[in-house]
């Protein structure tokens, strides 16, 4: 269990940060999730732990948004996408305006340092609708298969595929709007 938690803790923290955009709250979310899986699911086979942990993490994030809604209606009003579980119909692409000069043929890798590029990508990930980000993270970052992702998210496998496709399309467009192609991200080591 300890090895498993050590292997996922950093990504769990970043996932929580992308969702709630507050480091302190993200740390609390990770702590609660770790505590819960250690207390309640110690009898589960090791192979099930990644999916279970992700399900707990995502539920803890959702609970954080619910509590935030109760605490302050302002948080809900000004939160772009956070806490909105049922955002399947929302299309981020409708709201993205192209940055001026985005079509200028310059090489981003020559202009941006790695940290800047990372910041842009992280911002793009943060701007994704919650369910799209969740699906993308579980499927590609946590490397769960479609069935596991669906179980962790509590939705159908078809929904997972849809969320992933939309997430990739949205990210692609967001990055393109910043003049970044994903090849440049891969080149930057």
């Amino acid at each position: 269990m300890s090895d498993f938690l050590a292997s996922v803790e950093k990504r769990a923290f970043k996932q929580a940060v992308y969702a709630v955009r507050q480091d302190e709250s993200a740390l609390d979310i990770v702590q609660d999730s770790m505590l819960k899986i250690a207390e309640k699911y110690s009898d589960r086979p090791t192979g099930e732990l990644p999916m279970l942990f992700q399900r707990i993490l995502q539920n803890t994030i959702r609970n954080w948004f619910r509590r935030s809604k109760v605490r302050s209606t302002w948080t809900t009003l000004f939160s772009s996408f956070g806490g909105k579980d049922d955002d399947d119909d929302f299309d981020i692409l409708e709201s993205i305006q192209a940055d001026e000069g985005a079509n200028v043929p310059v090489s981003p890798s020559a202009q941006l340092e790695q940290s800047q590029l990372l910041k842009i990508i992280e911002n793009a990930v943060e701007r994704l609708p919650a369910r799209q980000r969740e699906a993308f993270m579980l499927r590609y970052w946590e490397e769960l298969d479609v069935a596991e992702t669906a179980e962790a998210m509590g939705c159908s496998q078809g929904s997972v595929k849809t969320h992933c496709s939309r997430a990739v399309a949205s990210l692609s467009t967001l990055l393109k709007a910043k003049g970044i192609s994903i090849e440049s991200a891969l080149r930057t080591d």
Partner: peptide, 21 residues
């Protein structure tokens, strides 16, 4: 100007995701 999504096939999607990850 508003960008529209470009559809990707499975392979392109995975490659793109690999870059982000």
């Amino acid at each position: 100007m508003i960008y529209r999504a470009t559809t990707m096939d499975d392979k392109q999607e995975k490659n793109f995701a690999r870059g982000i990850v």
